[in-house]
Design a protein around this nucleic acid. Structure first.
Length: 648
RNA sequence: GGGUCCGUGGCGCAGCACGGAUAGCGCGUCAGCCUUCUAAGCUGAAUGUCCUGGGUUCAAAUCCCAGCGGACCCGCCA
């Protein structure tokens, strides 16, 4: 018989046995929650219940006595996977029958192969995972790179779980910043890039944005000198100084480009004004503005696609924010919001009273907010009538729900408030169900040691640089360790090792924690890394290759070593880990699991022979175990998009 | 000022959702292991007020409250 989830079988049996025993011994039908913990030591079995501690007071007996009593009334005839049950210090410990369990587990893994572990949900949904969505202004930098890695891993997990998943990339081309890059690009005469297009666009954006900001501040300073108090003037002066130093930095890095843009922008009457006009024209859908902004955005996206393809991340849909505006969906949403009692006008702008929505619909407790917390209002439109990001996002969210039951937005945690306001806007419009099924997967920032990464200031390390460096270091590593390989093999190995290392490192740490970027951290080739797991996989493959036989004579009851049992147990628990990772959206559980399994296998590898083990029934059992480990490592790595190599 | 998230050996992290028996792992340090299945590996040693203080509980790194420290947010930016 093939079981999908071996450890769950054992767990179920423990539950049944314990329920029966408590009914018999304590005439207690409901015994409270039937949760089991993993004992700290295999001596105490593989699952334990601490239920006697809870019941002690109720029955006025010592936990140890209760435990003994319960164990006494256990019906041993019902044992399937259980070997024995013992009472130790108030705990009830369930010991596995490893002969049966190993056989059950290893046969299941080897039979199911690449499907093992991926337990399907009983309620398949259509889920949209919106991720990456880096603005098309500059290359994807390492601070943002956590997003596609997490987003892609989430999408894969949910897909394996049996959901229908669509990955969407939201192209934010409507904001003012898009007009800034388009403006600079236009001033340069819309040149063809002489390098990777997103890098090219990034330079223009940074310089243009810096020069325009300087212009704006200088004007502001002139006005302030006459009217504003002196501390205000000092503040502006300080800002100017800061931007001047950035300008100097940029001038040194890209002298030719800087000079040309400086000249063009000085020549312009009012760059600020022209950019605002372009922004307005683009939102209105004026053909010339459309052509210009789309052209430069496409250029940048072309570069993104290249990078993302390289790491194996792909999308089902690329959604242009501008399409939402032009199609009238944004204004429609705006009209409907206006018709609610939650929108008011203030000084020519539309404001959305998020606080009132939360209060009227009594949502604070539900959303995990304190009653006395006041949700700040959200500005829906500027005085010139153009819309703001979150306003457009309301329309976008509704569009996503046309296609899906559930939407997960992978967005940095700095946008938590905006996401909250978005949700409240959905409530205001009556889309309660959408609001409930909208999830914000927030992740913390990646920072560079010393200073904050800033795309506006051109201070960033691009994902491309990181990937190149990773592959290069992996190449040096593989050349050193395996000089006998051909050049082609080395290149291929360096590629998947380097890319794998980066993906793993960005998924491995709990998304809620901030990460300080260091090369060593991302390019780790030792324990706790993709290369370590890949190496372990290759090692297992190597054994199987050398054995060159099917483990037909395997006798699993011979797997008596603690290391072997630990391995069987770990392999058997993969389905449960997978379910947790899928239900609680924790891709890092998979990375941790793969690493832990590798640890155990390597210990086993160093301690016990496989091929040369005697008798052959044992050798074959270990071979089957090795095969099962290989399969599970492969499956785990596939979730985080890392190649599991046969050789390295 | 208000909100969200984070705080675990020198450093980087896991464990916290669902409280359980001696708090795991890696780096670094020290001492070892390649004529035996891939040394990107393994073994051993040293290193802890689990931020602090209260509370809940038979039991708290885990739950609750308060405080401290850090990051982020509170914009007619996205």
């Amino acid at each position: 018989m093939i079981v999908e989830n071996p450890f769950a079988e054992f767990r179920k049996e423990c539950e049944t046995i314990l329920a029966h025993a408590s009914k018999k011994a304590l005439s207690e039908v409901k015994v409270g929650n039937m949760t089991f913990n993993k004992p700290p030591n295999p001596e105490f079995g593989q699952l334990a219940s601490s239920i006697c501690f809870e019941l002690a007071k109720k029955f006025n007996q010592k936990p140890a006595d209760l435990a003994a009593k319960l164990v006494m009334s256990i019906d041993k005839k019902k044992f399937g996977l259980i070997e024995k049950v013992s009472a130790v210090g108030g705990y009830i410990n369930f010991h596995l029958n490893f002969a049966k369990f190993s056989s059950l587990t290893l046969q299941a893994v080897r039979h199911l192969g690449s499907a093992y572990g991926f337990i399907k949900t009983g309620k398949p949904l259509k889920i949209i995972v919106e991720h990456t969505s880096v603005n098309p202004l500059h290359p994807i930098h390492i601070g943002q790179a956590r997003n596609p890695m997490i987003g892609d891993a989430l999408a894969r997990i949910l897909k394996y779980r049996g959901h229908t998943v669509f990955c969407h990339y939201y192209i934010d081309d409507v904001g003012r910043q898009s007009s800034v890059i388009a403006y600079g690009y236009d001033k340069l005469g819309r040149p063809k890039p002489n390098e990777k297009p997103d890098h090219f666009v990034g330079k223009i954006y940074t310089i243009t944005s810096c020069l325009v900001e300087l212009n704006r501040l200088k004007k502001k300073l002139e006005n302030a000198k006459e009217t504003a108090p002196s501390d205000e003037v000092a503040k502006i002066t300080k800002q100017i100084d800061e931007w001047m130093s950035i300008a100097a930095e940029l001038k040194e890095k890209f002298p030719a480009l800087f000079e040309r843009l400086l000249e063009e922008i000085e020549k312009a009457k009012d760059a600020e004004e022209e950019i605002n006009r372009l922004n307005l024209a683009y939102e209105k859908g004026e053909p010339e503005a459309m052509r210009l902004v789309r052209e430069v955005s496409e250029l940048c996206l072309k570069g993104f696609r290249e990078t993302l393809e390289r790491v194996g991340v792909s999308y089902d849909s690329w959604d242009w924010e501008s399409d939402l505006v032009w199609s009238g969906r944004v204004s429609e949403v705006l009209q409907r919001l206006k018709a609610t009692p939650f929108v008011y006008t203030e000084g020519g702008v539309l404001e959305f009273d998020a606080e009132k929505v939360a209060r009227v619909f009594k949502l604070k407790a539900k959303m995990g907010l304190r009653e006395d917390y006041e949700v700040p209002p959200l500005t829906l439109t500027r005085a010139d009538g153009t819309t703001l990001y979150t306003t457009r996002d309301v329309a976008y969210t509704l569009q996503k729900f046309n296609r899906a039951d559930k939407v997960i937005n992978v967005i940095g945690m700095e946008q938590s408030l905006a996401q909250l306001q978005l949700k409240l806007a959905l409530h205001a419009l009556g889309y309660t169900k959408c609001a409930d099924n909208l999830g914000h997967f927030a992740y913390n920032l990646v920072t560079l040691p010393g200073y904050k990464m800033s795309s506006r200031r051109g201070r960033y390390i691009t994902l491309d640089e990181v990937l190149d460096e990773a592959v290069e270091r992996a190449y040096a590593e593989v050349s050193k360790r395996s000089p006998q390989l051909t050049e082609e093999e080395k290149r291929e190995i360096a590629r998947f090792v380097g890319l794998g290392a980066v993906r793993f490192a960005l998924v491995d740490v709990d998304a809620a924690k901030p990460v300080v970027f260091t090369w060593d951290r991302v390019l780790n080739f030792e324990t706790n890394s993709a290369p370590y797991v890949q190496y372990t996989h290759a090692r297992a493959c190597s054994i199987l290759r050398k054995a060159a036989r099917e483990p037909e004579k395997a006798d699993f009851s011979l797997l008596k070593e603690p290391l072997e049992r630990e391995l069987v147990l770990t392999v058997a628990s993969f389905p449960e880990i997978f379910i947790d990772a899928a239900e609680y959206l924790k891709p890092n559980l998979i990375a941790d699991f793969a690493n832990a399994l590798s640890d155990k296998f390597n210990t086993f590898y160093n301690a016990l022979p496989v091929i040369k083990a005697e008798p052959q029934a044992l050798s074959d059992a270990r071979l089957a175990l090795t095969d099962a480990i290989k399969i599970v490592l492969h499956n785990a790595l596939s979730i985080i998009g890392v190649v599991a190599p046969e050789k390295m």
